[in-house]
Simulated scan of single mutants.
Amino acid sequence: MSIQKYVKFATKSFALPNVCVRLRELLDNPRSTAEDIGNLISIDTSLTAKVLRLANSSLFRFPSQIESVPKAINVIGGEALYNLVVSETASTAFTCFDSELIDLKKHWHGSVYSGMLAKHIALSAGVKVAERFFVMGILQNLSELVVAKRSPELYQEYMNSDKSQLPFEHQKQLFGFTFAHCSGIILENWNLPIGLFYPITNVNDVSRQASDREVGLLALANRIAVSQLEQENYANIELFTPEIANTVTVDMEMVGNATDYAERETVKVAALIK
């Protein structure tokens, strides 16, 4: 099945909640105020509670408590707030594509772990609005659920194969695309910002890894996640390929700090979003 058919299946099966669409419109409108944004979020009390919990979590580590959405906007900024809302939406999307072939709880944990790693790596590299990488880490393997739901037999073949290749290499060989590439196109079709979908779409493109720092950072985070989450098969994979090393100014001490951070905080943050 072509990548376009999986994208079409995903976009027909799940649409971004209206709050995501409206929030994006408000952020892109220079006439919008923090009060406008706060009023939009506050309509949904459950979303408000989750956003405030995340704003007060280890994702930001602010010294004082954030008690309201307007304060969250003033402290973390509108784009960071948008990323938190998209993160919360991700858990709903994951549930929509639930498959008996995938342990959804384990998949969610791995996705949040990847997001925590990516965010910390981006912070270490001095990237602004680093929680955007948290969202990218979560969403990059969304299409794995889509593929398992739409093509269970082919996905089962993928799972039963040997682990001599890295996951993204085997995905490319079997499906003709990587899960990250398919996820990126889905996110583009959901009209998410280019700063979210572009690095995901191109994360396994070695030429982009060598020329685009954000792609390189996300690729490094992915390799760390694979080495940590699937140690039995991939514990000793190369993290700093020549292409990644060309654009990423992160050392092994920073990698160790990011791994410690993700190990320590993933369960807590995953529980806040669900």
Rank of each mutant, 00 (worst) to 15 (best):
L16E: 15
V21E: 15
L27E: 02
D28Q: 10
D28E: 12
N29K: 09
N29G: 09
S32F: 08
A34M: 06
E35H: 05
E35S: 11
E35P: 00
D36C: 09
I37D: 06
I37M: 10
G38Y: 05
N39Y: 11
N39V: 06
I41L: 15
S42F: 02
S42I: 05
S42Q: 09
I43D: 01
D44L: 12
S46C: 03
L47Q: 12
L47V: 15
T48D: 08
T48E: 14
A49W: 00
K50S: 01
V51P: 03
L52Y: 04
S57F: 04
S57H: 06
S58T: 09
F60N: 09
R61P: 01
R61Q: 07
P63K: 12
Q65R: 15
Q65N: 14
I66Y: 03
I66N: 03
I66T: 03
P70C: 11
P70W: 00
N74I: 03
N74Q: 15
A80P: 00
L81K: 09
Y82I: 08
N83T: 12
L84P: 09
L84T: 03
L84K: 06
L84V: 14
S87R: 02
S91Q: 12
T92L: 15
A93Q: 02
F94G: 01
S99Y: 12
L101H: 08
D103K: 11
D103L: 08
L104C: 11
K105Q: 11
K106W: 05
K106R: 13
H107C: 02
H107V: 00
W108T: 08
G110P: 07
S111E: 02
Y113Q: 02
L117R: 05
A118M: 07
H120E: 12
I121A: 05
I121N: 02
I121Y: 04
I121E: 08
A122K: 03
L123Q: 15
S124T: 14
S124C: 15
S124N: 13
V127F: 04
V129L: 10
V129G: 03
A130H: 07
E131W: 05
E131S: 09
R132D: 10
F133V: 00
F133H: 01
F134L: 01
V135F: 07
M136H: 00
M136W: 02
G137M: 08
I138K: 06
I138Y: 11
I138L: 13
L139N: 02
L142G: 01
L142V: 00
S143P: 06
E144I: 01
A148M: 10
K149V: 00
K149M: 02
R150H: 13
S151V: 03
